[in-house]
Design a protein around this nucleic acid. Structure first.
Lengths: 334, 334
DNA sequence: ACACAAGGGGTAAACGTTTACCCAAACAGC
DNA sequence: GCTGTTTGGGTAAACGTTTACCCCTTGTGT
């Protein structure tokens, strides 16, 4: 089929060693031979076989990344930032989607590991059930977790301080006079869900606000936001504010409120989390907690590089403080 | 580091051939030996090296996919559908982002080809400039294009009939009385942009409507929608309708109109294209042209499989007719 | 003239699998 | 008891690279 290095060597009338040396510039070769080899390679349309190279070298100049669900717009944003940071070093990124399923996640981990990626960036599906996959990955290649992490297993992580972030949102609505606040988020499966939930309770308690049965937990999707909004409307009185676990949920909540003629922010305040591209374009524009993609990606690559250089470097968990972006959904002006 | 099949064979006291046969179930092996081998593999934590296997077998059970920009929510939706359709056959999908850059796209193509993917699904960045990459890919592995295609190069494609789709949108607003219609879309780089643009002009002409300088072309992002909206407002009179090249643009247009106190649909009609998740949640909910993800993905995999079975099967271009989803941005009720 | 280093070429072994080929034993049919 | 087939094992070659090692030539300093 496609030409091998042996074909190139034959046509150039040199040994495969020389051909290889020319093509990878791994050693000095006389100008004349180099020209012959390059010409041969060009005329044959030679492309090196990365598989063979990987087998021999044991390294691939590729990093793998696994996200829980590519359809959640927060993840593509992170992926783009990571890509940009990988760009400089000429490394490739192979991305996989775990479809929110730990069995698929495991499959993807094994697929990437088997393909000898030089490192793995993972946003684990579950704070507990993803442990086996993570553990296996970590003992075979450098791994760093982003955004979400696996509990009780020491592996590098970089993310935003979810607890603090939700705190900012709660404090914000409280400062606007809200005392009856409901929290709409996802079931406590992922670390993000857990941390944000914990942050909500802690802050409410700190501010002396009642918690009661004010928590609706489903998943991180807009559809759940709609459902939750209906549940909120079903039981009177209307709370003062809805703090959402992420922007998708918040957008769903806003959509349903609009449909039900509930005015935001006049009748009720709404906040999100992540600051996805769409948050600023929602109606009303969404007050949210911004995740600094670029910084996250930068730290992530830094950690990965550090661990690639020295696998025994101490485990780090880097929590970056997020910031609140006030928009009209809590009365801010845009 | 990690155990090889030789380690397993040694520990089980068999030859590597037998070990391989047990582990891949490629030939009958006595129950007793099989048990010994499996136990050895288990206790050593053996994982087959996919790189070595790929080199030997020349096949990887993996398909690669390249999208122009993972941040555009239409692509993740397609990716998810493709994943679902790949699921059954246990094949892995490695996804790459071309960052709207044909140089990066080329790099990704080569990376995937070099890794011996069994097939490639690509949404080419450019209708013309992606040709070299596509051509190279096509002569090395089965390739199918989705959504966008490269012009003047025969390769399988499956997508929606963009031309027809825009026609539906234009006819719809025309049926509501619009005669002054402006088209906001992307520069004519990708086939989608070209087809949709052509569809707009053709339909306008067919309906006897004036085209004039009613076309604003930028890129497929919301930010451009905002800018375009401002340009539209700058020159009076306000047109009757804005037909957008995709939903992201439309959402940007809606956002800016809202900010500028222009009422949709009362003052002006707006339509999008794609029916991304967010379209139904925009304010007002967006009338748009729906792309049938599942069908696209199903056809895509079907084409890929066909070509994997027989590389000489005739090239097919499958255009699926999209449908119009009427929502409030053109006065529909939700 | 001689020792010695440097430059530039080739040979062949590795990387970890899978599999074509070979062979011994067991077994069936007569 | 003999032949032919099936079953289940091993040996070693391949997949396409890279690179350790070796060797010959040439240049250089004395």
């Amino acid at each position: 089929m496609t030409a091998t290095i042996r074909d190139v060597a034959d046509r150039a009338g040199v040994s495969v060693a020389t051909a290889s040396r020319v093509l990878t510039a791994s050693r000095k070769v006389s100008a004349e031979l180099a020209a012959r080899v390059n010409e041969a390679a060009r005329s044959l349309g030679y492309r090196h076989n990365a598989v063979a190279r990987a087998l021999r070298r044991g390294t691939t100049n590729t990093v793998g990344m696994i996200v829980p669900e590519i359809g959640n717009p927060f993840f593509p944003a992170i992926v783009e930032a990571v890509e940009r940071h990988l760009q400089g070093k000429g490394r490739d990124l192979f991305l996989c989607d775990a479809q929110q399923d730990i069995a698929i996640e495991r499959h993807r981990v094994l697929a990437l590991l088997g393909r000898q990626v030089d490192g793995l960036i993972i946003v684990p599906v579950s704070a507990t059930a993803s442990r086996a996959s993570l553990e296996e990955a970590a003992q075979r290649t450098p791994v760093v977790q982003v955004d979400r992490y696996v509990e009780e297993y020491p592996a590098d992580w970089v993310g935003v301080d979810d607890d603090l972030g939700i705190g900012l949102a709660v404090e914000h609505v409280a400062s606007l006079g809200a005392t009856n606040v409901v929290f709409v988020s996802a079931l406590l499966e992922s670390s993000s869900a857990r941390q944000r939930h914990a942050g909500f309770e802690r802050t409410m308690r700190r501010l002396g606000l009642p918690i009661g049965s004010q928590q609706l937990l489903g998943d991180f999707r807009a559809e759940w936001g709609r459902t939750a909004a209906l549940q909120i409307l079903a039981r009177k009185p209307l709370p003062h504010a809805v703090v959402c676990g992420n922007d998708e949920i918040a957008v769903g909540v806003l959509g349903e409120f609009r449909r039900q003629q509930v005015r935001v922010p006049e009748d009720i305040l709404v906040t999100g989390f992540d600051d996805i591209r769409f948050a600023a374009l929602a109606d009303p524009p969404l007050t949210t907690v911004r995740q600094p993609h670029e910084q996250l990606a930068a730290e992530c690559i830094r950690l990965l590089d550090a661990r690639m250089v020295d696998g025994d470097t101490p485990v780090q968990r880097i929590a970056i403080a997020p910031s609140l972006v006030v928009r009209e959904s809590t009365g801010g002006h845009s």
